[in-house]
């Protein structure tokens, strides 16, 4: 029940942010949409407890900031590759060990890798190995392990 309530509230806030209109009629509409979404999605109970929420939000913000810096850094790298007349790509698929425990963790891990320009997850193995296509597989193979360690540390702050 609490999980449903939480999802309805999140949907309401999203809806109000999108419509930028806090009239009672609009709030009611947002609530209705939230209930509809909750009925379709059926949220799993106990994804996170209220008491840990501030810490989780803080960790989420830190993770988002790190991701933004990573995206900008790699975006510049990819821009340089694309603008280079010789087009110096060394494409290939690299296996990255995720080591996240939950499915949600693996999914977030795959998202973090894919959202970075120059690396993108093609396939996820049953054992949580992320098969990642890289624009420059040699450079990515060197930096992948350290980057993955940072990612995992930041994400574990969110999930546990």
């Amino acid at each position: 029940m609490l999980a449903y309530l939480r999802l309805v509230l999140i949907c309401l806030v999203l809806f109000l942010a999108l419509t930028e209109n806090a009239e009672p009629a609009n709030i009611v509409l947002g609530l209705l949409i939230g209930v509809l979404v909750a009925l379709v999605v059926r949220p799993a109970p106990d994804l996170l407890s209220i008491r840990r929420l501030p810490l989780v939000l803080f960790n989420l913000a830190r993770y988002t900031l790190w991701l933004a810096v990573d995206i900008i850094r790699n975006g510049i790298r990819v821009a340089r590759i694309v603008l280079d007349p010789k087009l110096p790509i060394r494409p290939g698929i690299l296996a990255i060990q995720s080591e996240m425990k939950s499915e949600l963790g693996i999914a977030l891990n795959a998202h973090a890798i894919t959202v970075t320009p120059g690396e993108q997850v093609v396939e996820i193995g049953e054992d949580g190995v992320l098969y990642t296509h890289c624009l420059d597989v040699v450079a990515s193979a060197e930096s992948a392990e350290a980057a993955q360690r940072t990612r995992r540390r930041l994400m574990e702050g969110i999930f546990r």
């Binding site: 060394r90 494409p91 290939g92 698929i93 690299l94 190995v129 597989v137 040699v138 193979a141």
Partner: peptide, 13 residues
């Protein structure tokens, strides 16, 4: 097909 692939861990698996 991948053009000029240098490495394919997925195929190996």
């Amino acid at each position: 097909p991948m053009t000029n692939a240098m490495r394919d861990d997925l195929a190996r698996r």
